[in-house]
Design a protein around this nucleic acid. Structure first.
Length: 899
RNA sequence: GCGGACGUGGCGAAACUGGUAGACGCAAAGGACUUAAAAUCCUUCGACUUCGGUCAUACGGGUUCGAUUCCCGUCGUCCGCACCA
């Protein structure tokens, strides 16, 4: 646009017109190549192929409306890998789909009176076109959308299979209720006491829910993390913490006689049985059956329990909440001493859903117990004495001791280490029986809870269950799948439209035929994304969710790429689903879904704020000055706005840059190059206008450089002559050296380094061109130029595929025998011998400080190097006549003279 | 509170397994070309310097011939988990 306008205004600028025509025109070239790739099916992948497979996958997007820069970064990285692996001879699977169910579609429906399906499919169409304009090497023939009945019918089928396999549970439980979205949230979806999507403070409610029994696999999900050696340690650690394994002991405490209770005992779970002789009280949860029983005859206790329930579970509440308790008057016997009784409190800090909902309190060695004990005057008994402290004087007042030590005040445990004492207690309590059960039992506990998947929403996968008065919940028969969402729904009022639909839920019981009612809850959308990677391997199968042959062929995903925000939720669910699918015959031999995981950083941008506090888009601003003096002004009014912190691009802060605008202004290659260039891929990248312009300039520079190389390379493709000039050797060295490094960097996903290598190569080739006299170009130089052009194009082709195609096509006009697009060309083969030189440069240090450089034969003997190093002027000066003690020569690296 | 990561020029960053600290890019300064601008090309670019060097990888120690890299401590930033018994 700008160019043509200029030409119209200044028609006399003929020289510039010529210059303009020599510029690379991304706006013409990019759609052209995208069309060619599509028409020739360049990136279509066939399952039956003799080449080794490589499955590269980026986390599929939610069709929110338009793609953002985070998508551009994510999909560019995946595309570089896909294109590189394709060039390396792999049969690459690189599919794309849509995580299409979810709340925003319903919110949009409420606001715009449009149907969620309409909204979603329109967004998919927009975003598909946007992704295509990025030039991604995707196999669009495998595209899936999770909101298609063709997809979710398989999900319903797997739900039924999981149900039959005992992997589904229906139970009443306390759930996290999001009062804004009017739906239940899984534990994983509650962040700091708030809904992960709505940000609303989560409430506790009792509801009957469907659960997937992820806790069945807790042990395996934890243990298998060790084998995921191509996952970031951080993610593995986060998952391990989330699963939260602990080894402990179940201990039964008998109720002392005289208690008015049906219960005979209270069981506690402890990881510190060694501190049993430090016990001062027992505390049970407000939801513990014994507490509930006792409250029936004790109104004060009932009130206390109600108070506990009213208390929120948000961080703020928990941090400030006092440790409160209510003495039930009940007593329990100490397991090792029938004459020793402990009072039983109902306490607000004991959780019903961890362990047994009851603990014994050892104030001396647990801060929380100590706070409680001090508040209620229960005292404490130190039983672990820190090393070097006299047991006789060791006391605890305000700070519990939870470190290492030796047991004291503990009868038969005295003198033992903590570990030995734990073992001794376990052994003794296992040997004692109460009734026909031992008093103690070792138990491994997990923090991981089962995955509640019921959501009171419309736009999700219907749970294929029918509730019958007499038969209970009855699975829909597989032949009746899919249970399709009704289209005629209204979003006029809050709540679940499925539930208030006039006819949809009224069906006959599949078992007895009596009138019954459909389950109106739909599945958590994380279910949809827990198996899509498997569906991609054969998305055409209409009968089965997956084709086990295709699953076994393609999976695990060799390289999965996405944001760190999915470190627990999606990645843990997908790992669980893989196991559940395997148990039900849907996942072949697959153990883990993602062999390699990479979590990329975000795209961040400066924020701008007007005087009235409103956020301003960068596109609405012009900038003046630099550094501290840099200012931003609104384009229309000229009002100065405040330049704020660099933050994640977000619509609310208006610090976004629209990929479409960047692509139409600079081209997709520029955008791709920029998001890869500045920062390491796992770190955040700061989007700047200068940076994009830099990338754009480099696109033009490569276009010119390759034009020159192509021209200098000549018209024929003769072999390399025997006689090679130093200039030609230098060019070959630069090209092959860069090739070796780029290959290594791309393999290790260090795209920023790979890009630096391409820059460096361009600098070297420019310098080489500048240094030669055009008349003296011999066949050796021509060969070197042709070779350098061919290598360079293929090096940057994964990052900037359109530019590469244009350069490749131009080169193909001069070099005989080169046909086809660069997207189908093999990766160049490096010749390492070209990079090795006869003489090397060795830095020489004296006492660890560099004093000189030594240029010496590559294979020089140690004695030769030592003598030459000592003879250097810089070394002699630094030695100041001091005698040399020894000389360290690290071959090919460094010489250090120690004086 | 528990667990983890990180800290390098004006900025984004490199530096392999302990071996020349700052590759590459951005920004900046100077120059060439131009009536001028853009674009392009060339040069400079950690600090100090008596031009020999000296000091520099958050700070303080240690190991080593040699430390951005390994160890200990301090400070700071970020992330995850959090009444988990």
């Amino acid at each position: 646009m700008l160019c043509t306008l200029k030409l119209a205004l200044f028609p006399k600028r003929l020289t510039n017109t010529r210059m303009d025509s020599e510029r690379y025109n991304a706006r013409e070239a990019e759609p052209k190549w995208q069309r060619i790739w599509e028409e020739t099916g360049t990136f279509r992948t066939v399952n039956e192929d003799s080449r080794p497979k490589y499955y590269v996958l980026e986390m599929f997007p939610y069709p929110s409306g338009r793609i953002h820069m985070g998508h551009v970064r994510n999909y560019t990285m995946g595309d570089v890998i896909a294109r590189y692996k394709r060039a390396k001879g792999f049969n690459v699977l690189h599919p794309m789909g849509w995580d299409a169910f979810g709340m925003p579609a319903e919110n949009a429906a409420m606001q715009n009176k449009s149907h969620p399906a309409e909204w979603t499919y329109a967004n998919i169409a927009t975003m598909r076109a946007q992704l295509k304009s990025m030039g991604l090497s995707l196999d669009w023939s495998r595209e899936i959308a999770t909101c298609d009945a063709a997809y979710y019918k398989h999900q319903q089928r797997m739900f039924l299979d999981f149900l039959a396999a005992g992997l589904v549970d229906r139970k009443q439980s306390k759930v996290n209720w999001d009062p804004v979205d009017h739906t239940v949230l899984a534990n994983e979806q509650v962040i700091d006491g708030r809904g992960w999507r709505s940000g609303a403070l989560v409430e506790q409610r009792e509801l009957t829910q469907w659960f997937l029994k992820i806790s069945n696999y807790a042990e395996d999900l934890l243990a298998a993390l060790d084998g995921l050696d191509r996952w970031p340690d951080k993610v593995r650690l986060m998952q391990a913490n989330w699963i939260g394994r602990s080894e402990g002991l179940l201990v039964r405490f008998e109720l002392a006689p005289g208690a008015d209770s049906d219960a005979r005992e209270v069981e506690v779970y402890t990881t510190r049985p060694d501190t049993l002789f430090g016990a001062r009280f027992m505390a049970i949860s407000a939801d513990h059956p014994l507490a509930l029983e006792q409250s029936k005859a004790d109104p004060a206790l009932a009130e206390f329990i109600a108070e506990c329930r009213r208390m929120g579970t948000s961080v703020a509440v928990l941090e400030t909440a006092e440790k409160k308790g209510y003495d039930t008057g009940l007593k329990v016997h100490h397991p090792f001493d029938a004459d020793w009784t402990l009072p039983v409190y109902v306490a607000n800090f004991v959780l019903m859903d961890y362990g047994t909902g009851a603990i014994f309190g050892c104030p001396a060695h647990d801060q929380r117990d100590l706070d409680f004990s001090n508040a209620y005057g229960l005292g404490n008994t130190p039983v672990v004495c820190p090393p070097g402290v006299d047991p006789a004087t060791f006391t605890i007042t305000d700070t519990a001791y939870d470190g290492e030590g030796v047991l004291i005040n503990s009868r038969f445990l005295n003198g033992l280490t903590i570990e030995a004492a734990k073992e001794e207690v376990a052994k003794r309590l296992e040997a004692v029986a109460i009734g026909n059960r031992p008093q103690g039992k070792r138990q491994v506990n997990f923090r991981l809870r089962d995955w509640g998947i019921s959501r009171q929403r419309y736009w999700g996968c219907p749970i294929p269950i029918i509730h019958c008065e007499s038969c209970g919940p009855v699975p829909v028969s597989a032949a009746d799948l899919p249970v399709v969402l009704p289209k005629d729904v209204s979003f006029d009022e809050p709540g679940n439209p499925l539930d208030r639909h006039p006819t949809w839920k009224h069906v006959a019981c599949p078992k007895c035929g009596a009138p019954a009612r459909r389950e109106t809850d739909t599945m958590d959308t994380f279910v949809d994304s827990s198996w899509y990677f498997a569906r991609f391997t054969d998305p055409w199968d209409t009968d089965e969710p997956t084709n086990p042959k295709a699953v076994d062929h393609w999976l695990p995903v060799d390289q999965y790429i996405g944001g760190i925000e999915h470190a627990i939720l999606h990645l843990l669910y997908a790992r669980f689903f893989t196991r559940a699918m395997q148990a039900t015959g849907h996942a072949g031999q697959l153990k883990e879904p993602f062999a390699g995981l990479f979590t990329q950083g975000m795209v961040v941008h400066e924020t701008y704020r007007a005087k009235d506090g409103a956020w301003v888009f960068p596109a609405e601003l012009r900038f003046e000055g630099q550094g501290a003096a840099r200012c931003a002004y609104k384009l229309g009014s000229g009002e100065e706005v405040e330049i704020g912190a660099i933050e994640k691009m977000s619509k609310s802060k208006r610090n976004t840059v629209d990929p479409d605008e960047i692509i139409s202004t600079y081209g997709a290659d520029t955008a791709r190059w920029f998001v890869l260039s500045d920062s390491p891929p796992e770190r955040d990248v700061i989007w700047t206008e200068e940076g994009v312009q830099g990338s754009s300039k480099f696109v033009q520079r490569l276009w010119r450089l390759l034009g020159e190389l192509t021209e200098l390379g000549g018209q024929v493709d003769l072999p390399l002559p025997a006689e090679i000039s130093p200039a030609a050797a230098a060019i070959r060295k630069a090209a092959h050296g860069a090739l070796i490094k780029v290959e290594e960097d791309v393999e290790r996903l260090r795209f920023n380094r790979a890009i630096a290598q391409v820059h460096d190569l361009a600098n070297r080739l420019s310098a080489a061109i500048g240094a030669i006299e055009t008349e003296t170009i011999g066949e050796d130089l021509r060969f070197a130029f042709r070779e350098a052009a061919s290598i360079t194009i293929r090096l940057f082709a994964p990052m900037m595929p359109h530019l590469a195609e244009e350069c490749w096509a131009r080169l193909g006009q001069t070099v005989l025998g080169q046909t086809g697009p660069v997207s189908e060309a093999p990766w160049p083969i490096a010749d390492p011998s070209l990079v090795i030189e006869d003489t090397i440069n060795l830095p020489v240090q004296v006492n660890g400080k560099k004093r000189a450089d030594l240029t010496i034969g590559r294979e020089a003997a140690q004695s030769e190097i030592e003598a030459a190093a000592l003879a250097l002027e810089g070394v002699q000066r630094a030695l100041e006549g001091k005698p040399v003690k020894k000389i360290i020569v690290v071959p090919q690296r460094i010489v250090n003279v120690v004086a």
